[in-house]
Design a protein around this nucleic acid. Structure first.
Lengths: 174, 174
DNA sequence: GAAGTCATGTAAACGGTTACATGATTTT
DNA sequence: AAAATCATGTAACCGTTTACATGACTTC
């Protein structure tokens, strides 16, 4: 079967434990969104497709009066997820507007410092969120490895921005 | 004016010196594509739009019989680029399928090593390309700062993958 | 002569975001 | 009573990729 990576995010989340589309969105926003975001506009239609394909199964489980559909992985869904995990990852993409502006900064050299600054602040903000997740969530297993990656790579990014901002101030680039 | 970031990639490239759509694509593939890719399907229509908006100007400059349109920035285009450079960068996005698979690897623990391995090989490949660009292109000014960022961040990524692969082999995660 | 490169462009499809709509429950 | 949260979904739009089409010149 050929599914979009975002479909596998859903399968992966349901592998941990059954949950609603709303729960999936909340969990994604708390975890993988830093390297794979997902919106309601994807999650709900994708859940329908996965259900039709027999990879997940939804059951009405109203919580305190609110209608609610909790999905769980089927055996076929577990197999599909395992197959995907065994395949070589293909997608490595970055969109970094700060690097883009820095690259073109010869056309307006006095903007370079602000671009590096914004990049530093972005990574600092992510770092704060990840540290929050580390202390409140106390993740284990492979998610904790990925979280450590996030924290350490952000630390590296912040350090690079500080170092390069310093070099700019010294006039090393012009 | 509200343009897509990819439009600014075009403006930025033309700020260095006038060139054709084909040249822009070649240059992008050799430089910013690691953090901002662009395809012909974007470049040619975007050049038309920018031309209509008066930000670039095209002139027929056939090279050895082949028809060819060389674009250059207008004064308005230079202003537009400078305005954009002065604005705070907004887009910071990463899509990393290896981290995604690693995150879900509790569902198939023996796949984790291969995902980290693939990530390491990806960054090694990029590193080789960037080092090639460094030796053959000898970039200066801000592009060289960005290139150094690319090289050093890739080195960090490769080192992280090696370290974490080692920890996995030692059975530190399960 | 074939393959590769220079060069321009379009159309379809895809993945994803944003905004909107709805409505119940819970918290302030 | 109002604001926030839980919960589900759709429609429009946007940016991007991929595939295709065309054709001339250059290199092997």
């Amino acid at each position: 079967m050929e599914l979009s990576p975002t479909a596998y995010v859903i399968l992966g989340m349901l592998a941990v434990h059954p949950m609603s589309g709303y729960d999936i969105k909340t969990t994604v926003d708390y975890s993988v969104r830093f390297f794979w975001a997902a919106s309601y506009g994807q999650i709900y239609p994708e859940l329908s497709r996965l259900s039709e394909a027999g990879l997940v199964e939804g059951a009405a489980e109203p919580a305190s009066g609110r209608r609610r559909t909790v999905y769980r992985l089927t055996t076929a869904g577990q197999d599909e997820l395992a197959d995907w995990l065994a395949q070589e990852p293909q997608v490595f993409e970055t969109r970094d507007e700060a690097l883009l502006k820095l690259f073109f900064a010869d056309a307006a050299p006095d903007t370079a410092a602000a671009s590096i600054d914004a990049k530093r602040r972005y990574h600092e903000a992510v770092l704060a969120q990840l540290r929050e997740i580390e202390t409140t969530g106390k993740p284990e297993g492979h998610p904790s490895v990925v979280l450590r990656f996030g924290i350490e790579s952000c630390e590296w990014m912040v350090a690079w921005c500080e170092r390069e901002a310093g070099r700019l101030r010294e006039g090393a680039v012009r």
